[in-house]
Design a protein around this nucleic acid. Sequence first.
DNA 1: TCCTGGCACTCGGGCAGGGCGAGTGCCAAA
DNA 2: TTTGGCACTCGCCCTGCCCGAGTGCCAGGA
Lengths: 339, 339
Amino acid sequence: MLSERRLEVLRAIVQDYVGTEEPVGSKALTERHKLGVSPATVRNDMAVLEEEGYIAQPHTSAGRIPTDKGYRLFVDRLAGVKPLSTPERRAIHNFLDGAVDLDDVVGRTVRLLAQLTRQVAVVQYPSLTRSSIRHVELLSLAPARLMLVLITDTGRVEQRVIDCPAPFGETSLADLRARLNGRVGGRRFADVPQLVQDLPESFEEPEDRATVTTVLATLLETLVEEHEERLMIGGTANLTRFGHDFPLTIRPVLEALEEQVVLLKLLGEVKESGMTVRIGHENAYEGLNSTSVVSVGYGSGGEAVAKLGVVGPTRMDYPGTMGAVRAVARYVGQILAES
Amino acid sequence: MLSERRLEVLRAIVQDYVGTEEPVGSKALTERHKLGVSPATVRNDMAVLEEEGYIAQPHTSAGRIPTDKGYRLFVDRLAGVKPLSTPERRAIHNFLDGAVDLDDVVGRTVRLLAQLTRQVAVVQYPSLTRSSIRHVELLSLAPARLMLVLITDTGRVEQRVIDCPAPFGETSLADLRARLNGRVGGRRFADVPQLVQDLPESFEEPEDRATVTTVLATLLETLVEEHEERLMIGGTANLTRFGHDFPLTIRPVLEALEEQVVLLKLLGEVKESGMTVRIGHENAYEGLNSTSVVSVGYGSGGEAVAKLGVVGPTRMDYPGTMGAVRAVARYVGQILAES
DNA sequence: TCCTGGCACTCGGGCAGGGCGAGTGCCAAA
DNA sequence: TTTGGCACTCGCCCTGCCCGAGTGCCAGGA
């Protein structure tokens, strides 16, 4: 177990290194932080911290830098989540309030996150699986062709063209539309199958029944299939702040960012609630071994419908980043709940 | 007027520089190209070329590199468009044939272009300016809140939430919905503004009129925004091949790539037909001053519905890039025509 | 008139050497 | 357990140097 002071030393090292991007030595530490001990003591502590694997020396006669393990300890035990300043909060609110539709919300969120954290932002579109249905619309395109439009409470809209087995009259259509909305409006996707099970039976005409069955099949299919996730990415220009050696660092990161699958997996690992921080080698994907990912779920109600996060160098301002990510996630949730 | 041989020297310089990324000297030139003259002669030619502004010396005792003007001459008069090899063509075909929908076509095209040219690819979604409206749907979300859903004949759906100045009754809503569809259903986007101009007047209640006006404003706005095209970008990892100095070069490029407006303008400058090559400072946007943009329109019929292109360093393989861009544009056109 | 070989010159890159200083580890004393 | 002192290490940076690629110029030749 590390003593209180040694933890304090580690915290100081992390803070200084994040600020200066340069290995930090014992003397500089005592000068910049009020540790109340001499450099020599700090040196001893550093030796212990190094032995334990929390910090490392890039080369023999240099200061120390935190290792992934060191950052992990810092995040887990030493760092709080820094709340945003009031002006920042207000800025978030103002910026997100102007959004006109879901794409816009996501787009603005990405830009906002990238700006606030000065890192690469990744926002997943609200998934359909946990959404509920706001409205189902049925339109007649041709006598035997319908269009099904599905509007979720997150503002997402999905549409399908349906070829019916037989022409479907306007009255039947209005009837079906009303019943459908009566049953599934406001309900969760997951609940829909049971709710519509017996709908076809309430129609007299066998042909109408067939059509209704087709429509329902399409509806259910849409609900299931459409959890194909989408992402939006922004702030890649912030990659240039990565470091000096960055051709080597930046390339795999750019590649990872283009591989949506990788990113989705990355976000997928986020726990249902609460913030997840993956530091360096904790990331399964190799190209991101020198980056950290801070991510969190967001949603319109109490529960998360999707995730968002940022990707940055392991040497990042964790409290600030976590604060920004959390705040943005909350506000986006609010916006989604309102619209 | 430059003599035939001097042009030949310029071509050799461009080719060598593109290949080696290093300033090319007179001796190396005569060794690698069969110019039939001695280094001394080449030196004289180079002096002339430099005086004319086609090439430049990075520093006094170094070889020459082409200037933007030099590349321009090269592209205009010295370089053909290099056709792709048969395997390459086949690869394009196979790759694009697997696409299932528009998003997929565009996505595959971007990846293809990026791979073939090893540069950053930009593909504009096919324009909707010639689309028409299939259906307009109005839903009541709350007493004074509506959702407008717009369905185009290309199957695209757009939605907007509208906050009304006053509550809008169900009957008025049904009325408006019917009138709206009666007027604009099946019509081209461009025709809509005139068609709905007098709609508010046909409502009795002043409050309803205000609401109708709001709805129409939102509708028109949506139509306009639809014209504002979408883009897909890929291959940003290729930016790492830019050069040695690249933190400085790459950053503005990444920024430009995130500014869709900039890119749209960039592509917008493409002539309707034929390929456009913008070299270095020919690009209006400052951040792209050290890049070249090769772009071309593509479309399903004879006419271009959108544009695509690549962004790369001015030092790029122009014939090869142009060949790839042209070939991809053609195949995409075919795919779109088929579907 | 244009091309060529020769020649002197320039200048950037790379390498070696040396001083500097930050930082370390160890030790003895408080 | 902490502290001050001290010797030591080693990377960084500056300097001076050499080397060679590349140039410009010139005089002689086709």
